[in-house]
Design a binder for these strands. Sequence first.
DNA 1: CTGGGGAGGGGGCCC
DNA 2: CGGGCCCCCTCCCCA
Length: 634
Amino acid sequence: GGSWKGSSSPRAGLKTMLDAMEVPSHARDLLLQLNSQRTKGFLCDVIIVVQNALFHYLKSLVVHDNLINLDHEMVSPGVFRVILDYIYTGRLSEGDPTSPSEPSLGAVLAAASYLQLLDLVALCKKKLKRNGKYLPRPSPAFLPYPKMGPNSMGLGSRYRVSTPVIQPCPPGGMVNNLAPRPPPLEELIPHRLGIPTGELYAPTSTQPSQLGLRSAHPDTTCSPMFGLDLTKKSPSSQSQHTPTRSHLVSTHNEEEREGTLSGHTSALSPPPFPHLNQPLETGREMGNIYRWVKHEPVSYPGEDEDEEDDDEAGENGEQHHNHHKVGEESEGAEDKSGSGTEETGSSEGRPSPTGPIGRFHMSYEPESFGDNLYVCIPCDKGFPSSEQLNAHVETHTEEDLSHLENKSSQGLGGGGIGDMIRPYRCSSCEKSYKDPATLRQHEKTHWLTRPYPCSICGKKFTQRGTMTRHMRSHLGLKPFACDSCGMRFTRQYRLTEHMRIHSGEKPYECQVCGGKFAQQRNLISHMKMHSSGGTAGGLTVDGKLKLDFPEGIYPLTKYTAEHLGLKQEKASELLLQAQQQLVADAKALESLYPLSKLASEHLGLPPDKMDVLGQPLPPQAISDNRTIDRYSPS
DNA sequence: CTGGGGAGGGGGCCC
DNA sequence: CGGGCCCCCTCCCCA
């Protein structure tokens, strides 16, 4: 990848080389061979996921990473098959237009433009024209864009700018799940497909630079894309750890690929909502394009920026005027994205002054609320102004909202209130978040490649903050000092914990034995002792079943949870584990000693109901206060 | 020797 | 990006 970055000379060189090819059919033969190889799945080291379909691909034709996930709203498996065939054969099969399974040329065109397969776009247009179906679009500056998926909220205009969507998944050679991990990879597109490589191949030289790892191509200006910048934050923020750009030298090579790729990948990392995708331009012109988009009133203000943008925002400021400099792909992109952060950040509130909840106003039919166009989703009340709605929303207590959220998660199903409170759902798991940044952060936990490697030991992290924290341990940075003993810590939280040693405060109390602890974690491990070890003997010396919950099995009350210093949910879970362990132990014992009346009474159930305890308690049993009250020991 | 508690430290994750 | 919390591992001490 890196070799394509920078000036156009590599292309020129390739052209010369190809021109000089003594056997003219060589390229064709080679492609045929590759295609045959591909159809057999031989040496296909890249897997592209489109919905539930897997396509094998040769890495030589793709830029990086072994697993790529395509947004199936933009590219269906059928369409992608056609595209892949085209890539390998140079031929566009039109198939049988009457066959429902055969993708239409229009769909292929849309996907091709989405993927920036310009040659294919041209070919599709040509064929459509020939069929008399193609109506050229007025905007010459941009590729035609496919219609948006069902979740696009009608904001397809955001795709006005080229939005490569093939998303790099972490290497590792395996597809750990088919969950569509959105996004955009920048550059699937092989050079031979007609994309100017200089525009598509972002640099791969993105290894963290500050601590000595450098970027490639000494002749180009490479931004330390996701280099750890300890100058920014770290208490010891030693500037000496932060080489300036001019210090960068090239050490990039294949061996570094993984690391650099991960950086690159993250630099191009996908927004969590494919359908809310921001324009993620690949070319150096993108800065300009972006500027144009910025002023587009219809541009959807979703979570735009890419993860890597942030640390470049300042640095790139000086380069806003210089997008056309060859060899700056990444910076151009980042620059764009960085600006995107600001812009979209400011515009995010536009349609929805109340944030995520407000965002859902648009799903309502205005007329149904008369003049009260501003609707509080949780309680369905309408208000004539956003200010009034805001004032109203503030009257909702956290409790109200969490109650509603629980309700929705228990029965209202998808699209319920829970979704409105936490509208940003992970495409790979059931989790949802209140804001897109958190979702994006979370989605990285599903990646196979962790985007933030430690420059010292190479360990990789899903969050930059975790990586910088880790770095501090390498560097021995302990900014938090205890006033009493001078001991230093890497984290504030540790110091807080530590201070309890001096104060003697032990806020965490075991509700079973009354033991007190200064640190919650020690209470937790203590609780585990109660559960797993508790019935280790199973029987007391006098042969009775030994139980640690003399009152029987009960879910934790909120009160108890608070006393444990745990969130009720967590405490209940913990206790539930203990209970299940207890039941398992009791069952094991029962097989040895038929369950006595005494034991069943200890468990709070008649012997014939013992089985149900093997199953997790239903959520209501934990969260429903009435149930809790009934079982509560207090 | 072992179990349990105290405490330091690292990573994951969400806000 | 930092703060905060949770989880885990580990080491040390002591009964």
